[in-house]
Nucleic acid binder design. Structure first.
Length: 197
DNA sequence: TAGGTGATCTTG
DNA sequence: AAGATCACCTAT
């Protein structure tokens, strides 16, 4: 499938982008291996007035530098020393918004995903959770700061999901963010098994 | 339910 | 320079 234009990620509404990504497809062509999966769980992080965001209030460090690139860049970082988490930067350069991709439902390349995960079933444990999906899709720290593009890591249109099939809730694992932890910025595709319960 | 794991950030 | 923290996952 064709990559959507990165213009999509330039919109000034990261919450809406996170919502619209539900039902779109994530593709990777890494080490010559193609994987396609439906995006089933996302979270929005905002550069300003969101204590849960690594780049909150214009925070600039080595790690957060990529947040200040334009929408469509990948932010991949190591979490808990083990897991790689994949985000897509949104908004125009300097705004520091991002969407965390938390779960996907495999469509193509299941065998490759299974081998990468060393998990030989196709059920929710294959690609539910931000650490699992990056492992399954082959996304690593070397992809940090890359611009999404067809033939590498990219997003295609997929199928639009109606409002009644989208679960909206608070974000996971951000209790340190105080009242910002209560923001309803997590989106899941209800009809899928592939999201964090 | 607890513990692994290491880069990142803060404190002294 | 050292210690705390952390957008998670696996196996007891």
């Amino acid at each position: 499938m064709n990559a959507i234009s990165n213009d999509f990620f330039l919109q000034d509404n990261v919450v809406q982008i996170a919502r619209l990504l539900i039902g779109m497809n994530l593709h990777t062509l890494i080490d010559g291996k193609l994987c396609v999966a439906k995006i089933t769980e996302t979270e929005a992080y905002r550069g300003y007035n969101d204590r849960a965001c690594h780049a909150n209030n214009g925070r600039r460090t080595t790690r957060t530098a990529v947040f200040y690139e334009s929408g469509g860049h990948a932010y991949v970082y190591l979490c808990y020393g083990i897991h790689r988490l994949f985000n897509i930067i949104t908004n125009v350069a300097g705004k520091a918004d991002a969407v965390l991709i938390r779960s996907v439902e495999p469509i193509e390349g299941m065998k490759v995903m299974q081998e990468r995960r060393n998990y030989f079933k196709v059920d929710k444990q294959l690609s539910t959770g931000p650490g699992r999906l990056t492992q399954a899709m082959g996304i690593g720290l070397e992809h940090n700061k890359h611009l999404l593009k067809e033939g590498h890591i990219w997003v295609s249109e997929g199928s639009a999901i109606p409002t009644e099939d989208v679960l909206v809730s608070t974000r996971i694992g951000v209790n340190y963010a105080g009242e910002d932890a209560l923001l309803p910025w997590r989106f899941c595709y209800k009809k899928s098994e592939f999201f964090t319960k």
